[in-house]
Amino acid sequence: MTENAKPKLAMYWASSCGGCEISILNIHEKILIVDEVFDIAFFPCIADFKTKDVKGYPDGYIDVCLFNGAIRNSENEEMAHLLRQKSKVLVAYGSCSYEGCIPALSNLTTKQATLDTVFLDNPTIDNPEGILPQPRYEVPEGELELPVFYNTVKSLDQVVDVDYYLPGCPPEPPQIWAVLEIVVAALLEGAPLPPKGAIVGARDVAVCEECPLEKHEKTINRFYRPYEIIPEPGLCLLEQGLVCVGPATRAGCGALCPQVGMSCRGCYGPLDDVEDQGAKMLSAIASVIGVGDPSMEEDELEREIQAVVDTIPDPAGTFYRFSMAHSLLRRANLNGGNGKGEAK
């Protein structure tokens, strides 16, 4: 420990929206306890630190680093390695660093297609010379350097060793506080930490366990997007045709979304025995499609089923909204014709 003997806390954002930082503040007055217990060693969102400050720390100087955001470019990856080296406990904080989240949906396409969309094709862009960001650029003052934008978005554990995962987009305040309490107890009182690799701040059952909506046997004849219907109150949303990923999602959030009529998006990620959250939910959804009857000819039945499936406009984005980087496939094939753009 350092001169003032307080444990050191770091929080860093890689490819993320900033919501995870806000979620820390969302623990309200308890943030004062955090400040009391910890010494902030690095937290670019709220305090002025530079990367060189971190580089100056001895290895393992930071007691707990909450790392949020996915690994999208070379800077993210460099910071991941640096913070791993400087931290005793590295926590993948939030869905992006845990399993890729929204940024990782770009794994369905290529870097080139993403850059084209952002810098060239978007109707609000005025870029007649077609200038794209360059990793290096000569200016009279010298060479400028930008991080290299990667083709594939990765989760934190796909680049460095991770001690714990704290899921959620963002994690919910009671869960954040519960995890901080465990960490504080471990640091101050020597209480045992969870086993390495554990998913903390979440439960081992599905969201349905916490969801008070009434559930029945399910047969679904078509799906609806949220704006298309006003769900019947008190009834399971999935049964009403809203794609609720709750059954395939780890509980811990308190089922906040379904309770206000918005189906679960799946941000807490898959349960322990699930390899691929999207595939699992797809399989479940396919199992409860209830059209046709055994007397139908196969092609007729296929058409009926296809019509139901067609009511889900963006299956990849729906079922892999949070878990693309951690899925079995991880990304669309770069060499085939599946991605929007050509392979690099």
């Binding site: 081992d204 059952v205 599905a206 969201v207 349905c208 366990e209 559930k215 029945h216 046997e217 399910k218 047969t219 399971c236 999935l238 709750g246 059954p247 509980a251 349960l271 479940a284 199992s287 409860v288 209830g290």
Partner: peptide, 20 residues
Amino acid sequence: ELCSGCRICNTMCPYNAIVF
């Protein structure tokens, strides 16, 4: 211990072996 009672499996079984 881990079943959350979503009832997706309830109509699946061709042998009616699942009870809720």
